[in-house]
């Protein structure tokens, strides 16, 4: 892997067939992300934010062009290799939290480690560490149905960071949260970015999130309109 970047996209195009016509979701995207970035893909609905995030997360592959993530070409990965990449190196945070309802908070956070076959004592230690990071160690035995929206998203963050990934991809993480919880969540992620050096990439159109971004890539109609880097510390 080239040390200068964690992710590199070259001339990415994503085309969806729509009956007799096609929809171009991404058009000639050329971007690089370095380790430790706290970046956001911003833009209106349909601008291609989630599509790009899915390609970076090896959940989808580009129709044309190349996406290199942690040294792997996403478009050439087999399903198994893509699953391995996601399991070991990439954490996901979703707008609707996507917690597994029949599992407890502890078990939800533990899940990625189970897939990695990490021994039980180490698993327990890592899960409790992650829950402490998000301030939910005391809710380890609760079921997701008994959590508030803010708490659920914090569990999702703990699940994303428990395996100490290189990269966390967050798709509209605050869309279902009130202002106070949104700020709380964002502060937690800034802290994780600064202390654990985890790279965060967001897809968002929430102004509250944008205030925390150190880099803002504006997308419109599948194209990059602006790529801004904020050198100064963001206001919190």
């Amino acid at each position: 892997m080239n040390n200068s970047y964690l992710i590199k996209t070259e001339h990415i195009k994503k085309i969806y067939p729509m009956g007799l016509t096609t929809l171009i979701a991404l058009d000639d995207i050329n971007l690089t992300f370095k380790k430790g970035e706290f970046a956001g893909l911003v833009g209106p609905s349909g601008s291609g934010k989630t599509t790009l995030l899915n390609i970076i997360g090896a959940l989808d592959s580009p129709s044309e062009g190349s996406a290199e993530v942690l040294g792997k070409k996403v478009e050439t990965l087999s399903h198994r290799s893509a699953a391995h990449l996601r399991n070991w190196y990439i954490g996901f945070i979703f707008q609707t939290f996507n917690l597994l309802p029949v599992y407890t908070v502890f078990e939800n956070v533990e899940f990625p480690l189970l897939l990695q076959n990490i021994p039980s004592p180490k698993r327990k230690k890592l899960v409790m560490e992650a829950l402490e990071w998000v301030g939910l160690a005391d809710r380890a035995n609760s079921k997701p149905a008994h959590l508030s929206g803010g708490e659920s998203q914090r569990v999702a963050i703990a699940r994303a960071i428990v395996k100490k990934p290189e990269l966390v991809l967050a798709d509209e993480p605050t869309a279902n949260l009130d202002a106070e919880n949104s700020h709380h969540i964002m502060r937690t992620m800034v802290q994780l970015n600064e202390e654990l050096k985890i790279t965060f990439i967001f897809a968002t159109h929430d102004e509250k999130v944008m205030r925390y971004l150190k880099r803002k890539i504006s997308l419109n109609d599948g194209k990059v309109e602006k790529d801004e880097i904020f050198e100064l510390e963001v206001k919190k």
Partner: peptide
């Protein structure tokens, strides 16, 4: 379906 998508995102293989 959504749970399956989540499991896949977390790194579970289709098999």
């Amino acid at each position: 379906r959504k749970e399956m998508g989540t499991l896949m995102a977390l790194g579970m293989t289709r098999s």
